[in-house]
């Protein structure tokens, strides 16, 4: 399946929350210990920008220099949709001025969502259903996290990432592995009543809250992710040293460190930007890809292994060969 990235746009939460800010809000938090394990020194929140608005900001960046009338597919990956329905993709179609014949729908997944959506788009383009897809990931978790939530508050950030693709040899999906274990679904959930858009715009309070059983989610990660990555590598007769860049969902430092040790990934092959952005949920992998593209670190022939995991609980691994620089 061939699906190349032609452009990437990112919109970050406008409010920077530093460790010092967290410390002021929670004087009893041992920020040094938390930072040592989470790896996050700043988070980005968007108290008055909804998932839709962040998505629009990210997509507008790349559509400014593209023929938006050619966009025939729009997937929005989000687990923090502004409304139960309609989904972000439908509202975004109108906001961006895309044609009404666009194939538009939401993917209600979190940290595995980008890889799931990318594989789905690969299949849709291979089948000839779409030719010029736009994928937007957008999540605004911070407004749903209690200020005294020691596990979640230090790590999550708000962001959106938009990617325009074309079905050419610039990037080829060589192999993939996906999975779902709904038995652990309630270990990572957002529960309650969604806020009204006008409440969000006014920075009002929410009646939703994020629940994460950190230990269970960590055990899920340690159980499923290495096995999924090994399955793909083994099928392709590859070793970790053959991969140019491992791009994992930037969950937290403790997770990335354990995955690196478990899979014996060379230090320079595991891409990290957690310190800069925090855990932006569905956006972590596309933001990593943008960093690699902007840093001109992708070479023709590079092998990239993407792996997202989390909400669902679900996971998705994807092996990509770079044909040309985006």
């Amino acid at each position: 399946m061939q699906l190349s990235i032609t452009s990437v746009g990112v919109a970050l939460g406008s409010k920077v929350v530093t460790n010092e800010d967290l410390s002021e809000q929670n004087p009893d938090l041992d920020l040094a210990a938390i930072t040592a394990k989470t790896g996050t020194v700043r988070r980005l929140s968007s108290p008055q920008e909804s998932a839709l608005e962040l998505a629009s900001r990210a997509a507008t960046q790349i559509l400014a220099e593209a023929d938006k009338s050619s966009v025939d597919c729009l997937i929005a990956v989000t687990s923090t949709s502004d409304l139960r329905f309609p989904g972000v993709a439908c509202l975004l179609q109108h906001k961006l001025g895309l044609r009404t014949s666009v194939f538009a729908f939401d993917v209600n997944l979190g940290c595995s969502g980008f890889v799931y959506a990318y594989i789905t788009l690969g299949a849709l383009t291979l089948a000839g259903v779409v030719k010029r897809p736009l994928l937007v990931c957008t999540d605004t978790y911070t407004r749903f996290i209690a200020s005294n939530d020691r596990a979640a508050r230090p790590i999550f950030s708000d962001a959106a990432a938009a990617m325009l693709f074309s079905p050419d040899e610039g990037m080829t999906i060589i192999d993939y592995d996906v999975g779902t274990d709904g038995g652990g679904g309630y270990d990572l959930m957002l529960r309650g009543i969604p806020p009204n858009p006008e409440d969000v715009a006014n920075g009002g309070t929410t009646r939703m809250d994020l629940h994460m059983d950190g230990a269970k989610v960590l055990m899920f990660t340690l159980s499923k992710v290495p096995a999924s990555v090994r399955k793909v590598l083994t099928r392709q007769g590859l070793n970790p040293e053959d991969i140019s860049h491992f791009i994992f969902h930037q969950a937290s430092k403790i997770v990335l460190d354990n995955l690196q040790r478990n899979l014996k990934i060379p230090e320079d092959r595991l891409f990290r930007n957690l310190e800069k952005f925090g855990n932006t949920v569905s956006c972590t992998i596309p933001i990593c890809l943008k960093d690699l593209i902007d840093g001109k670190q992708l070479r023709p022939g590079s092998l990239l292994l993407l792996c997202g995991f989390g909400v669902g609980l679900s996971w998705a691994t994807c092996l990509i060969r770079v044909g040309r620089m985006p």
């Binding site: 394990k37 020691r150 230990a215 960590l218 055990m219 290495p226 096995a227 354990n258 040790r261 478990n262």
Partner: peptide, 22 residues
């Protein structure tokens, strides 16, 4: 606490070479 427990799980995973995964 919850963070301490994550540290324990992380170190057990390393010490057992991934043996606690399941």
């Amino acid at each position: 606490d919850s963070l301490g427990h994550l540290n324990i799980l992380s170190m057990l995973d390393t010490a057992t070479n991934g043996g606690i995964a399941d």
